[in-house]
Design a protein around this nucleic acid. Structure first.
Length: 297
DNA sequence: GCGACAG
DNA sequence: ATCTTGTCGC
């Protein structure tokens, strides 16, 4: 799913003489949480027929414009919209009658459906562990894969480059990153994969590490630097009363698929070095290097 | 103004 | 995540 295209289709529906808001467009996408992402996607809009200037703040304030707010004001006035003290009267000009299929709602339903296949019980051999991470430039994602043997030696590295077609939206990270991870795992079969992001530690109990694990039927662990949700009590994280992960040092560890919370923690600790399990840290470094070299040949 | 939501 | 330089300190 290309969320950029879905959003441009919505914004094109705002008629001349009316405006909508970042939040309204986000709701039409299916989740108010995407409001910031709407702003980011509009800022990168390449189509001149998409009237970005017709999207403003929910309090009637103008918001930003890639080529300057003055330009936004001029275009709005040309449409016949009155601006008083830098604000628009939304009671008079708001458009919120989008025709939409609520794409993000469909993705949430897919997460719930895939979650039924998720197994949080140990079901893996333990000989090799791979780490995966992604580095971003304006238009591209650079994914890296680093595989270790059980003694901690690196036995394989690979990288891929791919165009970005989905913005970062909290709780939908998998839809931004999974295409890259799927490309990386082709022809590889590590016993366990560590992903930079959460697994069970997710409001719908289905973070990117779970999503990846289920789709590829590979044991996986989520490694996050920040807590997405839940309550922390003595290093354990709970979501809806369920223990979904553990804080190990400064990172949050949660199972993805085919592994228990306890095993996810013990394997993570076994590879821990510089506050981060080496497979993920090395993948992070490799992804960054690859992006920098591609940006400055 | 506060709280805050992986990357 | 990215934008960004040097600098202080273990």
């Amino acid at each position: 799913m290309n969320l950029y295209e879905e959003m441009y289709k919505l914004v094109k529906q705002i008629p001349r003489g009316m405006v909508s808001t970042y939040g309204c467009v986000a709701r039409a996408l299916g989740d108010i949480r995407a409001a910031r992402a709407v702003g980011i996607m509009l800022n990168q809009n390449p189509y001149k027929e998409v009237p970005c200037y017709r999207v403003v703040y929910s309090d009637g304030g103008l918001g930003g414009y890639a080529t300057g707010v003055e330009k936004k004001i001029a275009l709005l006035q040309r449409d016949g919209i009155e601006i008083r003290d830098g604000k628009i009267d939304l009671k008079k000009y708001l458009f919120d009658d989008f025709e939409t299929t609520y794409p993000l709602k469909r993705l949430r339903e897919e997460q719930e459906r895939l979650r039924k296949r998720m197994r949080i019980e140990d079901d893996f051999e333990f000989s090799t562990v791979a780490g995966m991470d992604i580095s971003y430039s304006k238009r591209y994602a650079y994914g890296a894969y680093v595989e270790f043997d059980r003694e901690g030696n690196i036995i394989k590295k690979k990288v891929v480059k791919r165009k970005i077609d989905f913005p970062y939206i909290p709780t939908y990270l998998a839809y931004r990153e999974l295409p890259v991870f799927s490309e990386l795992i082709q022809n590889e079969r590590p016993d366990v994969v560590m992903i930079d992001g959460n697994g069970l530690l997710h409001p719908r109990l289905f973070g990117v590490a779970c999503h990846f694990g289920v789709v590829h039927d590979i044991p996986s662990i989520g490694i996050a630097k920040k807590k997405l949700c839940g309550e922390e009590r003595e290093k354990s994280i709970f979501v809806n009363g369920r223990k979904v992960g553990v804080k190990v040092g400064k990172i949050y560890v949660s199972p993805g698929h085919r592994i228990s919370v306890d095993s996810a923690v013990s394997i993570t600790k076994r590879f821990m070095k510089y506050s981060m399990p080496e497979p993920v840290r090395q993948a992070h470094i490799l992804a960054n290097e690859t992006r920098r070299e591609d940006e400055n040949p």
